[in-house]
Design a protein around this nucleic acid. Sequence first.
DNA 1: AGCACGCCGACT
DNA 2: GTCGGCGTGCTC
Length: 739
Amino acid sequence: MIYADIIVDISHEKLDRSFQYRVPKELEAEIQLGMVVTIPFGNGNHERKGYVTGLSDKPAFDISKMKELHGICSSEETTEERLIALAAWMKNRYGSTMVQALKTVLPVREKVKAKEKRYIVLNMDAAAAEQLAAELESGRCKARARLVRALLKEKKLDYTKASRELGMTASVIRPLVDQGAVLVTQDEVYRMPVDGSDIPREQLSMLTETQEAALLQIQEEWKQETPRPVLIHGVTGSGKTQIYMKLIQQTVNEGKQVIVLIPEIALTYQTVRRFYGWFGDKVSVLNSRLSQGERYDQFKRAKRGEIQIMVGPRSALFTPFSRLGLIIIDEEHEQTYKSENSPRYHARETAEYRAQMENARLVMGSATPSLEAYTKAKDGEYRLVKLEARYEDRPLPEVTVVDLREELKNGNRSILSRSLKTAVERRLERGEQSVLFLNRRGYAGFVSCRSCGEALKCPHCDVALTEHNNGKLVCHYCGYEQPRVEKCPMCGSPYIGGFKAGTQQIEQVLRKTFPKARVLRMDYDTTRTKGSYEKILSSFAEHKADILVGTQMIVKGHDFPDVTLVGAIAADLSLNAADYRCAERTFQLLTQAVGRSGRGRKAGEAIIQSYHPDHYSIQAAAKQDYEAFYQEEMAYRMLMDYPPAAHMLSVLASGEDEKLLEQGMDYLAKFVERISGKYRVHVIGPAYASVGKVNDIYRKVLYLKHKDERVLQDIKNKTEKYIEVNSGFRKLYIQFDYT
DNA sequence: AGCACGCCGACT
DNA sequence: GTCGGCGTGCTC
């Protein structure tokens, strides 16, 4: 006897789990993981669709109460099945549940139905409704009267909103529907995220010689029997985009479809415009601001073959194309390609798998490839294509690294070094623009005591509080607020204050130092409202300001031809993050920043301020020398057994009970040591996670390192089982992640 | 989501 | 007692 775990295709959080059904004898040979089946469900035994998420020969439920599944839906939806197979792979690779993997791969199914616009409307005129309401009130039907009254005020009510805000349940609404008093309707109109119809069509521009050579190499690889993924290593401004466009065009001409992944931050109106300009209505663009409904519409259009090209962030990878021919990942090194939620998949790996599964090609590009990808390219797993020349042979900007320690020794306590100050002055005189950025990733403008060194922390989240302009101290995790303090709560010293390194402070310094300059600020605070991001960028592009100051978001992918100076205020803020990738991130950011200078006809300059001017990531970035950085960084990773030299698995546990968490993690660490003895796995921790406490939930983490990924996978599977059978872990939430 | 169950106030 | 509204909980 075979039993199948099935996820019911109904959209509700309550049904977010699987149910077990008997598989009829005649279907035993045929049934497979990921298939769509029909099942009787619920009290009325309504027939519904479900997905097979597990098969077993042992029942996990009282057999006398178990129903038998009806049949297999003939695989009309082959794309869907392939995506379910992808989900199954993700489940194994990243260690999530099948439900979570399915939800990631088929957001269509549950999210859509949940968000599908259903409305309640009156089915009678106002007078009749008024009478009905009165009748219902005089009777005992208070809830129904409430609904009718609400409908009199607002003739179209959102179904879910109505049930939440008015406390309606189906048993209130249904009798009214049966009675014919109201109607439940739903509209199904495509909502276009961006209307591309008014954007003029453009011809693809001619390729330069170097671009043409790169294109030929890629096409040559595609002619191989089993084409490898291609990694384009092209310096900033070498024109990778033009190559992508040619490849997309070629693929579409072959009658196949294309997915283009772009980091969220680069999905600006400019980018979207370019795609529409080149490919018109063959393209659809996704972004995270789209509602679930809008997103679903675009997926549906893709499934029906109405579009051939999908552009979007990480999640666009799951576009249900049936004839997928090419996946492009731009800015392959970007952190956003790694999902933060379970399954914590990486878009590069997952794209590689999907491409292989569907016989599609994969092309990645970056000016600063991730160590993982570049290592694979070096090992011949990926085909490496280099694109060295800068577009129109523009020279690289001249880079100066300023030692901030020297500045302090010479009595300059300002955020601006003397060289940066004079450089900005020169731009102002010449009417050119400057960009100054502060890499505050993972860093907050904390308040600390200069006498005991203690920083003020959030009582719930154990992270440093950030000082805002209004004088309040705010926790960026949970939103906790407290007024500014005059004395250090630890030692009573009055010497307590902020570390003045936020973009706001820099903006103030700039305004004071250059009173005539027009300064624009762009950071998380100024880009929160809709459209403000584009507004700031376009007003700077139109030269309505002289200086743009902001966080790293300003150095990603925007072309400002009049910018001839880029300054990194404190390059080493990111170097001090508690993460083995901090040098890589610093190098990437600085390289990108330097590349932003001198994109127009005028020569550019870049100034990097740092307390570690000799660090290889800063030196290599200054010289735009990727290879030098790669050698140094790879040596460090090999020495320390960090990825990609070895593989690393993190086990993150969280729970409300700190004692229990501590005990559980210690047990887990011992268990892992015991079962991994013969493999010599390196176990680190357990330690508190970098954010040790969020909303009163404690978090601890354990790291495992080993050269062979399969060893870690084996340990992960065994640990998962151990956790499952041990009731001591019931109250802990445990997540695995390959970092 | 959709169904049964059971509680509770109103009326025979 | 009984009837019906309406919240609650379960679905293999």
